[in-house]
Amino acid sequence: MRSSRTMTLPVTTSTSGGLPWRHILLAALGVLVVAFAFSANGYVVTVIGFAAIYALFCTGLNFFMGFTGQASFGQNAFAALGGYGSAILTADYGFEPAIALILTMAFSGVVALVVGYPTLRLRGHYLAMATFALGLITYEISINWTDVTQGYMGYSGIPPLGIGPYYADTPKQQLAVILILLALGVLAAAALKNSRFGRACRAIAGSELAAGALGIPVARYKLVSFVIAALYASAAGSLFAHFVGFISPEVFGTAMVVQSFTMLYLGGIGTIAGPLIGAVVVSLLPELMRGLKDYQTIGYLVILLGILIYAPKGVAGLLDRLLPKREG
């Protein structure tokens, strides 16, 4: 296929040497959101919980897309693996939720390795469509393999999160567990971003040829980055299953792809804070647009298109412009 367009995504190449009050501002906002969630009623807890789960999902996707400069339109496949894996292991076989979470993550990682090995040789539109197909295949299977997934009916009776005798019974306890896991995930991503591996990934995003010439094993690093994204997606899927107690094929459909991309682009792709900002804003948007009723989804899509056209670097990009970093 002819490739006249640039294949790389906008990547912020700066390391974390910014002004401290930038971080303080973001941290304060985060604390505010969390405090609000814990002081508010059950519904807000649910919304923030979803936002945190999506933030985890997007943090993984951001590693593959923002840092490594690839694209996966099928990460929902791994979220579905995580969700259904956890649901089946805990509800049918009585596994501990924590152990089921880790087992399904391992399984998703292996699947990502096997599937990614041939797929990641593709570039541009082919990569986009091949990964999109992965998501669609998983969706079709989750509908049609009714013996295992119960099809459209969905899977219910999934126990809440917990390990051993400790169970997160109330939504607020669940939210606390999710937030802790999210914090771990974000810290891991931040550490990876500036590690030798992370810097190599960003070099790949800049130019695969140049990265290869510098001795970076491009294919292997792309694959590892894909597996990392799949691990995050799988964990997010598992958490969703436990948080809601019910999953159905629609949960992990194409809408999930578009929603997570909206979060990434709105928050700012290629930054650590971007997925978090995006997940919170996009999760709260429908709540702010309740008055629009039927037009809610339309308003949401219009906002996405507006951002893609007019602010492709998202909120994090705007912050960069408003609060410029000190040079040197």
Binding site: T6, F73, L301
Partner: peptide, 14 residues
């Protein structure tokens, strides 16, 4: 604006 192909793909999907 020279948007990346992935952004354009997403826009057509949206």
């Amino acid at each position: 604006r020279g948007a990346s192909i992935f952004a354009i793909i997403l826009a057509t999907l949206a």
